[in-house]
């Protein structure tokens, strides 16, 4: 077991101790992992996010849908502060991860990204071997022991359902894999740092239907362990895999609800129009 898991288990036992000290065994209350209050983002003069409030609870799949340019990717990239890589970006408002504001000066962005993994739109494996791609994260965070690394690599590849396809060629370049395999490798790379949350930015938009199916299966599997926030262009995908859906339009959050409600009984007419394909 890695030190990362050990650390986390430690924290969790502490938490459950605290809970058991409480007066009654509460029915399982879901912990809020992300809290967003009045988030505004500007790219230069462009107001990309206009005052968004959005809570995300643990072990849920939240889908963010909306037409191109509605700010859904920007919002996702804010959650692990990747948005700061964009030149000329300005941020106001609050985003808290596990109760701590991530924009505080003292907040350690590397630590945040260790807990919050990200899978990108285009599969982006490193020009390294399959093994090195997965081992990259643990190595970055100080794990040197070859045995531990081997185990992390195998487990991560298994969790991403790609182990059987690559176990005999871990030393070959990640570029020898197909697009769908590369994306699952990227998910494995993300799982290797044992995150709490996985952010996915249209992870299947560059893939064929078969690979898309596999990734969706994988997401269903992963939500037992992780919280997943996924931006998607594909509304059927949102309906298939998510527990909650947020509809973004023009930088605003129009509606956020159980996925069932959003798709069957949207309260805002714009949501309905978008879902029925009247625009976007």
């Amino acid at each position: 077991m890695s030190t990362l898991t050990a650390k986390r288990l430690n924290i969790e036992t502490k938490l459950s101790d605290d809970l058991s000290k409480g007066l009654r065994p509460v029915e399982k209350v879901k912990k809020m992992i992300y809290e967003t209050n009045q988030l505004h983002i500007w790219y230069g003069e462009t107001h990309a996010i206009k005052g968004i409030d959005l809570p995300v609870y643990e072990k849920e799949v939240v889908a963010i849908i909306g037409p191109s340019g509605c700010g859904k990717s920007t919002y996702l990239k804010t959650l692990n502060r990747m948005v700061e890589l964009v030149p000329d970006v300005r941020i106001s408002g609050k985003v808290a991860y596990n109760g701590k504001s991530i924009f505080d000066e003292s907040y350690d962005v590397e630590e945040l990204r260790l807990r919050v993994g990200m899978v990108f739109q285009k599969p982006n494996p490193f020009p390294k071997s399959i093994y090195e791609n997965v081992a990259y994260g643990p190595r970055i965070h100080g794990i040197r022991n070859k045995g531990v690394l081997d185990e992390i690599v195998e487990q991560s590849l298994r969790k991403a359902y790609i182990w059987d396809e690559v176990k005999d060629r871990l030393d070959t370049s990640a570029y020898s894999l197909s697009g769908g395999q590369q994306q699952r490798l990227c998910i494995a790379r993300c799982l290797a740092i044992e995150p709490e949350v996985i952010l996915m930015d249209e992870p299947t938009s560059a893939l064929d239907p078969k690979s898309t199916f596999k990734i969706e299966e994988l997401i269903r599997e992963l939500k037992e362990t992780y919280s997943i926030i996924i931006v998607t262009h594909n509304m059927q995908q949102a309906a298939r895999i998510s527990d909650k859906t947020a509809f973004f339009l023009d930088g605003e959050l129009i509606e956020y609800n159980e996925t069932n409600n959003i798709f069957n009984n949207p309260s805002d007419s714009r949501t309905e129009d978008y879902i029925l394909g009247r625009f976007g």
Binding site: L114, H141, I193
Partner: peptide, 15 residues
């Protein structure tokens, strides 16, 4: 060097 490579690295928490 393609930006998506450095993004992938930052995304895992690399400095």
């Amino acid at each position: 060097v393609p930006q998506h490579l450095s993004e992938a690295s930052y995304g895992i928490g690399a400095t």
